[in-house]
Design a protein around this nucleic acid. Structure first.
Length: 762
DNA sequence: GTTCTAGAAC
DNA sequence: GTTCTAGAAC
């Protein structure tokens, strides 16, 4: 079935303006509302829905769309839910979407109802502790979806692992987080009090300040750790409402204040006019960038005494990561002193890493007077906060609280009480705050980094393994919170967003499925100002038409496991799956081996997501990875001379982080289950390592000739090329096929076999 | 009736 | 990347 067609037809057309309901709404300014409930079983969604339905005293008509009962009292489909929601909206009712909706993809069609119909779409997130949800779903006796008893615990835990926190950019105008029953009651009361023509403020409400989320390699390495609740996506702020970004253009004074030979101050004009001829990246910086600029102090390097050399590397790495992911944001590292060592270290490292200096630069000045004294406009600034989120101490924290006045204390208290090291929280700064009025700061993001000072709380006693991880988390959290702010503001400013043509365009030849592309293109239209962009290398490849395959790829949370492993192998060195760790790569058993022996050599280089990112600079790395692969294949051949190995890369990998497959050609594995699995190892989709190395050497890039289309091709034996109708029949055939391998595989060392078996296999 | 695939994900 | 399952294919 063509999902897109089904999905779009289920979305109702806008009601004609001649209908009574529509006219009435326009006259009153009121809107129907679609409320998408987001939560696992046992989190209170149905109770909430029933309470809203049963208690709506204010006269707004509601309909509940419950997937567990939509099929004549039994569980139904998402399409049925969309249809029911459309019908209810046509009847002038507001709608509660009562299904789990935990993953972005699952709720996307509901979140987008507001695009096509004159309705607001809200998300109510039932963010109760996992324990509570499990205990409730285990104990209940009459669940609509028959999910109760022992199975419920497993289902809830599994679902929570996949939970993705809703974002305004998904199409929600309002997101409310309920952390306990009291919050749920408050939300019920609010919707009950909503009259037919009333509206609710836009924004994100009630989110707490959890730290950044690490995608668990443990899943990949077959260990489970349910104690760590995972979610993904940038954190949004708890806030009364997120105000629209504003640009402030008061008179420029004292523009040169704070300038130094190390970090020269540049005016907005100079920065915007600076040509990027010497920059390798392709991004441009638009003139209204101040609304998308974050100024931040160095975290943990002052009072918390974190080593400057290490800190500077972490800053540059985190900055490079976020700039690669998002276009049109600008980051500025600020320090008071002209002789600041951290600024000079960061500046040098950023230059070495070819970071576009108009998108990230260092700045000498007072972070609380960037505009009035420094001529630099930043709507968002970061604060090096303490764990209590209280004023005082010294340095940046004291300065920011002093400059922002009591408004900041009040606003902060509404958002969070405490902060743990490695996390951050966004606080919208009230317009009454002097810092807002004078400097145009609309948001402050409090960040807490690791502490190496024995006189301060949570001292890590020079444990830089842990400390570096926490500092990286702190910056990642900070930057992602910043991106969320920009995205929320862009979401409210769709028209302006649409007017801005972007350089980082998502290629129509993307590696995604049609369904994913459709969703992306819709998202891209609406939120074009902040979106993933191509790496400079990818852009160059595209320009020279060396590659026919798309370059931009959004990696799902499940696709990050190898990246996590590559960045932090020390955390996994005791795992049975990890066979070898070196400075350049890690060798591990594939968790889902598609043959008797199947290992991966994973590059540890950050930014090298797949073959599309590889160029001549990486040639020696590729050779070292190949040698490691050969070494392990030879070891396996000693153990079992009947095996034959092939080393290669997937043209379009599913997992982020460049990895080389070393796979035995028996394909004797219960994990090899479908056409995609088979074709990814036996068609042109699989690029032999020897050929990749040769191509990079000769042409500078890997010619990725096949995309995911070949994965849907007929099933053919990799030896005799005979075709087979389905996977079981193919597997039965390959278990017995004794044909020699195709000639080209026997050349250039594409196949590795035991010397004793050589004649048998050829 | 059973096997298998393709798409959704209580 | 997996698991689950409706319904297509046999």
């Amino acid at each position: 079935m063509d999902h897109d067609a089904g999905g779009s037809t289920a979305v109702p057309p806008q009601p004609p303006s001649t209908t009574g309901a529509a006219v009435k709404e326009e006259e009153s300014g009121g809107k129907q509302v679609v409320v998408v409930l987001v939560g696992p079983p046992g989190s209170g969604k149905s109770t909430f829905a029933e309470a809203v339905l049963g208690g709506s005293a204010a006269g707004r008509p509601w309909a509940r769309v419950c997937q567990d009962t939509i099929g004549n009292g039994k569980a139904g489909t998402k399409i049925q839910c969309l249809k029911a929601a459309a019908d209810a909206l046509k009847q002038g009712k507001s709608v509660l979407i009562d299904r789990c909706n935990l993953e972005r993809e699952q709720r996307a069609d509901f979140a987008k109802l507001g695009n096509t119909v004159h309705v607001d779409v809200h998300a109510v997130v039932f963010d109760l502790p996992a324990k509570v949800c499990v205990s409730r779903s285990v104990n209940r006796k009459d669940h609509d979806g028959n999910l109760q008893g022992g199975m419920a615990a497993m289902v809830v835990n599994r679902m929570l692992k996949k939970k993705e926190t809703p974002l305004l950019t998904e199409g929600f105008s309002r997101i409310v987080f309920c952390k306990d029953d009291n919050d749920i009651k408050k939300a019920v009361d609010m919707y009950n009090a909503l009259g037919p023509s009333d509206g609710l403020a836009s924004g994100v409400f009630g989110q707490n300040s959890k730290g950044p989320v690490q995608v668990g390699i443990m899943k990949f390495l077959k260990k489970t750790d349910n104690s760590k609740e995972k979610s993904s996506g940038p954190k949004l702020t708890p806030s009364e409402s997120i105000p629209q970004m504003q640009n402030h253009f008061p008179k420029k004074e004292n523009l040169e204040a704070g300038g130094s030979s190390i970090c020269p101050v540049e005016t907005e004009k100079e920065l915007n006019n600076r040509k990027t001829n010497d920059d390798k990246s392709i991004e441009s910086v638009p003139s209204d960038i101040s609304s998308r600029t974050l100024a931040f102090p160095s975290i943990s390097t002052a009072d918390f005494q974190f080593d400057l050399e290490r800190a500077s590397s972490i800053i540059v790495d985190a900055v490079a990561d976020i700039l690669q992911k998002y276009d049109n944001i600008r980051l500025v590292l600020v320090d008071l002193s002209q002789k600041s060592r951290i600024l000079s270290l960061v500046k040098d490292k950023a230059a070495k890493k070819n970071i576009n200096s108009s998108r990230f630069f260092t700045f000498v000045g007072d972070i609380t007077q960037l505009h009035s004294k420094g001529g630099l406009r930043c709507n968002v600034i970061a604060n090096a906060a303490n764990w209590r989120l209280k004023p005082g101490g010294g340095g940046v924290n004291a300065a920011i609280y002093n400059a922002a006045g009591e408004d900041l204390q009040r606003a902060t208290k509404e958002c969070a009480d405490t902060l743990r090291p490695g996390s951050s929280v966004t606080v919208p700064l009230p317009s009454t705050s002097p810092l807002h009025q004078r400097e145009g700061v609309t948001h402050i993001i409090h960040v807490l980094g690791p502490n190496m000072n024995p006189m301060r709380p949570d001292c890590l006693n020079n444990d830089y393994t842990n400390g570096s991880k926490i500092l990286h988390e702190a910056y990642t959290s900070l930057f992602e919170n910043f991106v969320s702010i920009v995205q929320s503001c862009m979401g409210k400013n769709t028209e302006r967003a649409l007017e801005k043509p972007m350089t980082g365009v998502i290629s129509p030849n993307d590696s995604k499925t049609k369904r994913e592309r459709t969703h992306d293109s819709e998202r891209t239209k609406k939120h074009k100002l902040v979106q993933p962009i191509m790496t400079s290398n990818q852009a160059r490849e595209g320009d020279s038409k060396k590659s026919t395959v798309a370059n931009t790829k959004t990696w799902g949370s499940w696709a990050q496991a190898l990246y996590e492993l590559a960045m932090h192998p020390e955390n996994y060195k005791n795992s049975d799956s990890v066979l070898e760790i070196s400075d350049d790569f890690i060798v591990l058993n594939d968790l889902y081996p598609k043959a008797r022996k199947h290992v991966l050599v994973v590059s540890r280089m950050d930014g090298l997501d797949s073959l599309a990112d590889v160029n001549k600079e990486h040639l020696s790395l590729l050779r070292r990875m190949h040698s490691a692969g050969v070494k392990w294949a030879q070891k396996f051949l000693e153990e079992d001379p009947s095996l034959v190995f092939r080393l290669g890369y997937h043209s379009v990998p599913s997992m982020r982080q460049l990895h080389l497959h070393i796979i035995s050609q028996d394909f004797n594995s219960t994990r090899l289950k479908n056409k995609k699995h088979w074709n990814s190892f036996t068609t042109a989709f699989f690029l032999d390592s020897v050929d990749v190395i040769e191509e990079i050497d000769q042409r500078g890039s890997a010619a990725i000739r096949s995309d995911e289309k070949v994965l849907a091709m007929e099933l053919r034996c990799h030896r005799c090329r005979s075709a087979h109708p389905n996977i079981p029949k193919l597997k039965a055939h390959i278990a017995n096929c004794k044909s020699s391998f195709p000639t080209h595989l026997l050349q250039k060392g594409r196949l590795l076999l035991s010397s004793t078996m050589h004649t048998d296999c050829t």
